[in-house]
């Protein structure tokens, strides 16, 4: 029997990897994947503490988010010709 807190630790590690990825990766698609990783780390923790209903809702919302995100990325690629995050530097001040 694996104790509950080990899932918590694993969830925290996965979440940290996701956070790091969002902060340091330059490609928008990878950033989107890292956000998904963060959400799934949360799912892992929630499953380990027996909150399955919450997990279903998060999975659903994550799917919605990905569909909107990928549509946006497709538009970005068509307009800028790249998915590199550094193209988004026009708005500042």
């Amino acid at each position: 029997m694996i104790p509950t807190y080990s899932y918590l630790v694993l969830g925290c590690i996965l979440f940290s990897i996701g956070t790091l990825g969002v902060l340091i990766r330059r490609n928008v698609v990878i950033v989107l994947m890292c956000i998904e990783l963060m959400l799934n780390a949360v799912n892992l923790i929630l499953v380990s503490v027996c909150e399955p209903v919450f997990v279903f809702f998060i999975m659903m919302v994550a799917a919605v988010e990905v569909s909107v995100g990928l549509a946006l990325i497709a538009r970005v690629y068509r307009k800028f010709g790249t998915t590199d995050i550094s193209t988004f530097g026009q708005l500042k001040g």
Partner: peptide, 18 residues
């Protein structure tokens, strides 16, 4: 989405008793 993920992580930690 990043902020939502952080909020969710907070909720999950709350359920886990942190």
């Amino acid at each position: 989405s990043f902020a939502t993920a952080i909020l969710l992580f907070g909720i999950a930690l709350g359920y886990a008793g942190v």
